[in-house]
Structures are given as structure tokens and as C-alpha cells.
Design a protein around this nucleic acid. Structure first.
Lengths: 211, 211, 211, 211
DNA sequence: GATGAATGAGGGTTCATTCAT
DNA sequence: AATGAATGAACCCTCATTCAT
């Protein structure tokens, strides 16, 4: 990213980032169109490439940007973190839900990156991810009180299971959420349904794992 | 698909199908290149379009082909189906692993189709899928003996949990498997690791769910 | 044209020629499809190119064929030729009408060649035409009795005028004739209208030119 | 047509238009090659499609352009219109000749459009033509003084005859004009010959029709 | 002789990227 | 710094022609 990008007004920066997130969350990397991005952002073709050099750099910049924002949010959240891992995850989910509602494109971009790494960008995506690793889920799981767990439970497996159940539920709702992105009512309904479902699965798992 | 395609030597058929699966598993439908497919398959541009008419038909042919092969495999497997859901899933996994080893592109194509239905082909993909419906996961879960489960366990949640744990492990290995697609040794090592890991997680879950 | 073509059954020859005439009368040279020709003629791709070498040769063969058939017909007609040039032209027209009705593609091919010489074939078309020149309109105009004409009339201009009036009327009907090629009733109606119109224009010209 | 096209230097515009007219006058719409156009015009493929969007729009733009230029010329000419239909036609011819000399491709394009309406563009061609209708031949024949004609002459037939004689002469020269498009001397000689010939035929017809 | 599978140059079109202004 | 016109490689696909069978 070119230093001149930071000098432009924050609003313009936001416009560009949102336009790009929006395009990259709607289409796979290779299909996403820089033309649409500049059009939606209201900037010229030239300036986008001055700021970001090329499509790939823009994409990687967005990924880094999103990871940072996410980690900021997680970090902020962690202060109020509950030692109960189920509560902790509920907080994470509620935080995510807030993000989703504030900026669906932001969230859908993240989801898309996770599932569909184009060969043109995989390597770099992973490089970035490993650089930001300290801010990832592992950090999110600090200060969990493992004494809630039954003694015979290997918490490593238990935590993965919880996470994957959450992932499974998320996937169930993802496509529908993306489709109802412009119908705020059904969008919120879906989010409520999802939250309820998470509660149910947690209610199922908790007595299995906890004393 | 043009009848002449079936008349061609099986090796050539395999070359073409594999080249196409490979390209379509690396790139989204729109950006997958028929040029690269013919190059990798060692055939001329013209003949690809004689066999399949156009890119879309080729893609849908592959989808149908993959569904059929998968259903063959599942069907063969089901005969020995164990009423124990964990055993059933282990069979499914081992079947998948065999498929993966025989034809990694086959498997990666399937994964991509599942996550990224391009708007140009969604409708037709779904049409094909509904035609092949009888062979899906639901059928895979027939004749499970639920009496193994503890009475207090709601099997609906338990089955989802098992499935999602499998998905989680799969995702962990997917990207690595794709990358080591041309290094058969590390590929097989990964598959072994994955199998072991599944065993571990099942070993963790089983006493929680079963009597 | 390859000698083997003459050895095949006349019916097959006719099939091929008609299929080709039909295609070339429907489409300009460059757009006409050898695929459609072989399909309609019920022959293989290979044999068409064995008989005619390439598309251009086929086209030129057809042109020569059509010129020959036309000159045959004219020659046959000439025997009954009337010394009155108007009557002579009426005979020519009626002969043409017969040809049109017998084989519209034959006729439409001729028309198309006359107006739309593709640069790929112009030179050769003209070469053929000059070879066949002895059979053309000039011959058709032998033994005309010029004593019908007023003395002050330069018959060179008069004959051209008559011919061009006929051409003008023909052009008026051409497109419509081509469109109604499959509706024999409206096709015949058009031909009748055309004949009437020719009579009218001749009735207009005759007193101007003739004593 | 994209607004950027008008901003470009007139010379470049002319180059592009002439290259396109030239290609479309040599080949039927479907086989005319945008590749050849950009090559002859000395521009990139991309910019042609930026200016005109697609081949069809380019073609229709040319048609409209040609109709407009033609109607400009006719309109300018009409101001001096002579009530004598022969003089009127001579003016039309001399105007056409000027156009031909200024831009032969322009003229040949027009000729091709008239004879060979490709199914892909017929509808739109007709739409454009009907929009420009006010400038057609009918208008050209307004305010003719029919009192010059002998009383026994049916002017309807006479006017058609004059027009068709002109068409006949034109056709005689058309192909030759197209061939000598790059040899300006023989081109001009042909045009002079044609003009003389028209004079001769008019000199022949006039005493037949006029008092 | 006859087939039709196979070829590959060429078709129209798009789009990330560059560069003169 | 900012624009958007210009580039050209790559896209999917067609079709006259060849050649193994």
C-alpha cells in the first residue's frame, strides 16, 4: 500500500475499503472487478493502482486490515472475558454478530477468504495470517478456567469440538445471511435464529464437558 | 457430452477429466480456463468443445460424474454398513480417503463446488443434485442404531456434532492436501495423520455420547 | 472438382449440389457453413473435401454449374426465339420463372453471386464468367429484328434500358421471393405479380422504342 | 458510442471509421473482423471496444454515420435543386461521385448494407433507417416539374426507368471502382467514364420522355 | 472410397494494469 | 496527486480443413 493512501481523508479511505470489501465478498478473488470497486468508491482507476499497486496487493491489504480490525474487537472484548469457555464463545459470537450488522461486507469478506483461497493468493494469505497469529483464536482462549471441565475430559478436544460446532452452525446460516444482506428484517431474524441455535447446542454440550 | 467422448481411450478420457477437475478445483468456474485444461490434457481446443459443447456443459458433466462416482463408492460401502454411527463415519472417511488418494483433483473439485456455486451454474448444479438426491448424506445415515446412545443424549445434536468435528478436521487438512497434490509421499503422510486425528476425536466423543 | 464426384450416383450428386446451393443462397460465401452442407446432403465431412478440395472450389464449381445449366436453358429457348426483343425478354423471364419454381435455391444462388462478390472469390468468379461469356446475354440477343425500332433510336441504349428495367423489377421482388420460398402459394402469387408488372413496363417502353 | 471517441483527434476518428467502413464493405457483417479493423486503424483491440462496446454497435454507428453524411450532402444539394428530373439526377450523381472520391469505403459500405442485411442486424438497421427516413429518395424527388414530360408518358414508369438506368450503369462500374480503390488515377478515370455514360443514356432517354 | 475425430488459427470480448496528461 | 484513455494478453468458442482408420 502506497503511503499516499493514509494521507487521504478517512471518509475516502473508508469508501475505498468498503467498496473493495463489498466486491471481494460478493465474488471470488479472480472474478472480482477492480472496475466495480473504483466505480462504487467513486475514484479513478489510476488512483486505486497508485494506492495499492495491483489487485493482489489490494486484496492482501484488505485481509490484513480485516484481521487487524477483528483482533482489535476481540482484544477489546477480552477485557470483559468470562473464564467459562462457553460464555467466552457466546461473547465472541455476539461480537461477531455486531460486526456483521455494522458491516456485513466486512464479515462476508472474511468468510470468503477462509473457504476459498485462490491459488494466486494462498501463499501470501497464509504469510499474513501467521504474522497476525498472536491475535488469533488462541489468544482469545487465554485465561479460560479449565476447572469447570470434568477431569476425564481432554480439554484440547473439547475446545475444538465447541469451535467446530459453532463453525457448523455458522455455515448453515452463511449463505442465507449473504442473500438477505439487503433485507434488514430477515437479516436480523436470521441472526436471532442463529443465536438461539447456538444456545441449544451449547446446552447440549455443556453437561457433557462440565462437571 | 458428445458420444464420441466415450469412444476415446479410457486413458485419454481420464486425462481430460482430471485436467478439467484440476483446473476447476483450483479456480472459480468463471476464471477456470479451458485453455489450461486442453494444455494439461494434451488435446486440442476444438476437441474439448466437440466433446462437451461448452464450458458450462463440461463443468456440469464433471459434477454429475463426481456425484456418480461418489454414490458408487458410498453404495458399495453401505453394504457393509455398521449400525454404530462412529464406525459408519469411519467407513465414510476411509472411503473418502481412498477416493482422495486415487484422484485428489476429484476430491478438491467436490469441495470447491460445495462452497462456491457460481451464479452461472447454480441452477443447473442444483437440478443435477436433486436428481441424484437419493445418494446423499441422509441415506448414509439410515439404519443407525441409536440404542448405543445414552438416554439423556439428544441424538440430533450428537450427530451434528460428530459431523462437524469431521468437517473441522477435514478443513484442517484440506489446504495442505491440495498443496501436496504432486508430492505423493507427503500426501499420504497427511492422509494418515488425518485418519489418526479422526480416531482421536472419536475416541474423545464416544464415551460422552455412548452408554 | 475430383473425378470421383462424377462417378457417384446422380441422386447423390444432386443432393450435394442442392444442399450446397441452398446453403450458399441463404448465406454469403464466408458465412456459409460446410457443416450444414454435409448435414443436409447426408454425407461426411471428409468426402465433401475429397470431391471439391475446399470451400472455395466448391463455390466456384457451383457457379460454373449454374452458369452451364442456365446457358443450356437459354440455348434450348433460343430455338423458339422471337425476333421481337420484348417477346424475347418475356421468353427469358418465363424461362427464369420456370427455373425459379423448379429450384429456387438455384436461382437465389445466382442472384447472390451477382450482387455480393466476396473478395476471397471475386477474381475467380470473373475468370469463370469470362470463360462462359459466349453463352451470356449477348448470345441471347442474336437475331433480334432491329427494324421494329424507330430509326432515331440507338438500339444499344434501348436494349440496355429494357434489361435494366427488368433488373429493377426483379430486385423489387427478390427479397420477397426469398422470404416466401417455403410458402408455395404466396411464392406463385409473387411470380404472377412480377410477370404482370413486367408487362406494364414493357407496355410503357414499347411505343417509345418501336415504330 | 462512448463519449471518449469524440474527444479523440479527428484524424484518428477518421482512421477508425475508414478502417471499419473498409472492412465492413469487403466482408459480410458476421465475418468482418474487428481484428483487421484495429490493425488497419493502428489502434488496440481494447480501445475499439471502449469506443463502440461491441461489433454490432460499431456497425450500426457506421450505418447511422453514413446515413447522416449522405443526408447532409443531399440536403446541401437540394437547395440548388432543378425541377428537371434529369438535372436533378445528374446533381445526385455528381454528389455521389464527390462522396465516392472523398471516401470510397464510405460508398462501398453503403452499397453492401443495401444488398446484404445480415439477420443479426437487420432489425436495428431498419430502425435506424426509419428514424432517418425524412432524408430518403422520396424527398429527393420533390418539386419535380412533370410538365416537361410528354402528355402520353406515365411519369411513374418514366421515373422508375430513369432510376433503373442509373442503377444499371452504377452496377457496371461498382466492382471496378472497388478494385481500383487504391489506384487514385484509374479510380478517377472510371468516375469520369461513368459520368459520361450517364450523360449518354440521359441524352437517349430525354427526347423519348420530354416534349 | 468414405468416415468423422482432431486440429488450431481466428473470431469477438473483457479487464488488470500503465501512462500521458 | 489524480484522471481515464489506451494497451494487450487471455478469455470461450467456431469452423474449414486434414488424416488415421
Amino acid at each position: 500500500m502506497h503511503p499516499s493512501f493514509i494521507k487521504v481523508s478517512e471518509e475516502k479511505q473508508r469508501n475505498i475499503i468498503n467498496a473493495a470489501l463489498n466486491e471481494f465478498s460478493k465474488h471470488p478473488y479472480e472474478t472480482a472487478s477492480t472496475n466495480k470497486i473504483v466505480k462504487e468508491a467513486g475514484i479513478s482507476k489510476g488512483i486505486l493502482f497508485r494506492y495499492f499497486g495491483n489487485k493482489k496487493s489490494l486484496y492482501l491489504f484488505l485481509y490484513e486490515y480485516v484481521l487487524d480490525k477483528l483482533s482489535e474487537a476481540i482484544f477489546a472484548d477480552l477485557k470483559l472475558a468470562d473464564p467459562d469457555v462457553f460464555e467466552r464463545y457466546k461473547q465472541l459470537i455476539s461480537m461477531k454478530m455486531n460486526l456483521v450488522q455494522q458491516n456485513p461486507a466486512f464479515f462476508h469478506f472474511m468468510n470468503r477468504v477462509l473457504i476459498e483461497k485462490s491459488p494466486e493468493v494462498t501463499t501470501e494469505l497464509e504469510k499474513i495470517q501467521s504474522l497476525k497469529e498472536e491475535n488469533n483464536y488462541d489468544k482469545f482462549l487465554t485465561d479460560i478456567d479449565y476447572s469447570f471441565f470434568k477431569e476425564e475430559i481432554d480439554t484440547k478436544y473439547a475446545l475444538d469440538t465447541i469451535k467446530w460446532v459453532l463453525d457448523g452452525i455458522s455455515n448453515r446460516y452463511d449463505q442465507q445471511l449473504k442473500e438477505s444482506i439487503h433485507d434488514i428484517d430477515s437479516f436480523n431474524t436470521l441472526i436471532d435464529q442463529c443465536t438461539v441455535e447456538i444456545e441449544e447446542y451449547f446446552h447440549f454440550l455443556k453437561p457433557l464437558f462440565y462437571k
